[in-house]
Write a protein that binds this DNA or RNA. Structure first.
Lengths: 224, 224
DNA sequence: GCCAACAAGATTGTTGACAATTTTGTATGC
DNA sequence: GCATACAAAATTGTCAACAATCTTGTTGGC
């Protein structure tokens, strides 16, 4: 569930739970973009002082999840098409690098269970519109790749980008046909990884993100 | 000079200057890795309250420039070889993407002045060991590419990564032969950009970072 | 002489109160 | 009726004091 949990283990101060709770609400669209965040309200709700909320705001702003206007407070960051494009352009190369490094650093057999997961049964799963199962599989693929790439810097960046696009990705799966194509692409990527072809896997992952970006463009009216 | 100034224009609060000042000291190695940062000392020096210093610490920690140990304070982050490798692995794809986007989005003629800058006279400049001129040229190349790539997310990530490796890069130029090779690589990259060959430019930039990484490995005893 | 227990000092973590700024509501003049 | 000026309320920005935790120096015992 928690995308950023891959690397953040340290510092369990009083305010740490606040950051995570706010992050979760924002990426889950519990707090919709543009929502104004009042320090005192949140402080009362979480039972901490305003200073803790302020600390959380500083960090969430640095991650791009909220925007702050001097003397006016904090707003949940909006995701306009231009900004979404920027995020896709960066994800394209970072996720491709993730797959490349994972292929190079992990033994080929370690992907067998994921190949099984994305295998024959997945088609039927999607036919029944069981999107949760698909989302879980993609999420697992992602987590395994991040772990295998053994690069904390990359991991943190991917988590940060993922937080900002999670809502969009989730909605994209709703578009008829997108999940099927995504499944096929993951099968191809995994096949390349199983064969140890890091460069090919990287290229395929890049195409996967570009493809997602194109679907987003074609359906952006419905997605944002 | 200020690498992170490309995008951070907003929020000129009292504490904003503190962040920038501390960042500058860290990336310039004015504060060496492992240095302990005491809140009260810095608060007195900058003439602000400890809370402002604390805010700055939060942000610098998020950017990976300092590390915090609970109840023990903040240390300037150390850059061990493993972490340096991680940074190179990420820079490799992000800077390549930067060059690709810059080539695609900016008119070919716009690189003519940089081609001139990295042209014939540069060889003599390096022969005289005028490293400042070389560093300035590389810095200008970088800034122009970031601006041309028109991607704020990418720009922020590159600035953040650059801050963490600036000292290392600066020292790497000292290694005999590295500057000459870097110059040649930039000439090739710029030639590809001038020709509008985005994919080739991307590939060359990738090789440029990989090459820098190898030099770093070979001379890491002297560099860290 | 060396180690452990304890106490004093230093440093970070947290809070509530105060100051500065912006927004909102109201009254007044045209 | 509408716009402007002013005042009150709400909200954010800043700070200094207090509490908790860790480090360091000292003393006593073996």
């Amino acid at each position: 569930m928690a995308a950023a949990s891959t690397a953040k283990i340290v510092r369990l101060g009083a305010g740490e739970g606040v950051i995570e709770a706010l992050r979760q609400r924002i990426v889950d669209h519990d707090l919709t973009p543009g929502t104004r965040l009042r320090e005192q309200d949140l402080a009362s709700e979480f039972g901490v002082s305003r200073a803790r909320i302020r600390d959380a705001f500083n960090i969430l702003e640095e991650r791009g999840l909220i925007e702050r206007i001097p003397n006016r407070g904090a707003l949940v960051a909006k995701l306009d098409p231009a900004k979404a494009d920027e995020l896709f352009e960066v994800r394209e190369v970072l996720e491709a690098q993730m797959v490349r490094l994972a292929t190079e650093k992990a033994p080929a057999e370690s992907w067998d269970d994921l190949i099984e997961l994305f295998g024959d049964s997945m088609g039927g799963t999607l036919a029944k519109n069981d999107l949760d199962a698909y989302e879980d599989a993609v999420h697992l693929f992602r987590q395994r790749c991040i772990a295998a790439s053994e690069n904390e810097v990359l991991s943190n960046l991917l988590d940060s980008l993922y937080d900002r696009t999670q809502v969009l990705i989730r909605r994209l799966v709703l578009v008829p046909g997108r999940a099927q194509e995504g499944m096929r692409q993951h099968q191809e990527i995994l096949a390349a990884m199983r064969a140890g072809k890091a460069e090919k896997a990287e290229k395929l992952k890049r195409q996967n993100i570009r493809s997602a970006r194109e679907w987003f463009h074609n359906y952006r009216k419905y997605l944002l």
